[in-house]
Amino acid sequence: MTSELTPTPDLTPTPGQTVGPFFGTALPYAGGTDLVGPHHPRAIRLHGTVFDGAGAVVPDALLEIWQPDEEGSVTTEPGSLRRDGWTFTGFGRTQVDGVGHYTFTTVDPGATEPGRAPFVAMTVFARGLMNRLFTRCYLPEDTVALAADPLLASLPEDRRATLVARRETDGGLRFDVRLQGDAETVFLAYPRHARH
């Protein structure tokens, strides 16, 4: 048997499948929500609720975020799964709670290039969701950068608003995810994704 000899593989991307309901022992992990510790001087709460097309909360979604640090640098530090409490790894993962709510403790992402609108990249997984969804959670403050952002500029005004977080009085960011319906969140396809 010569299993080392691999024929030229089919490079069509492998299909995705739903995360299903039973990821709880495998994917969420202790510290998954804490990109920084709560006592970090500029720690903020990034939180929100996941809703379905009937406006009901989705109690079994899983969210991941990936973001630059406050200066806009993209980290290459490992340690997201076993946090040391000090190293910023840029990645977080959490299961929503029984009322569809999620909370990350993080810092505001910086602009990765001068003048660009800072955002947190997010992926959404859920039972009943056939494949993961990508979206972006933009900071609301830099209105000039937001107006110039190529993605936001390509969207109608009402759709654009679904990608911009709301700043709360305690400094936190509120970002709800609506899988379906009138206020449906804008979900993204990137150039090298299959069209289906």
């Binding site: 859920a126 009943g128 056939m130 899988l179 379906q180 969140t185």
Partner: peptide, 8 residues
């Protein structure tokens, strides 16, 4: 999937 798929 009925209420959990994007329609847009």
């Amino acid at each position: 999937s009925l209420l959990r798929h994007p329609t847009k």
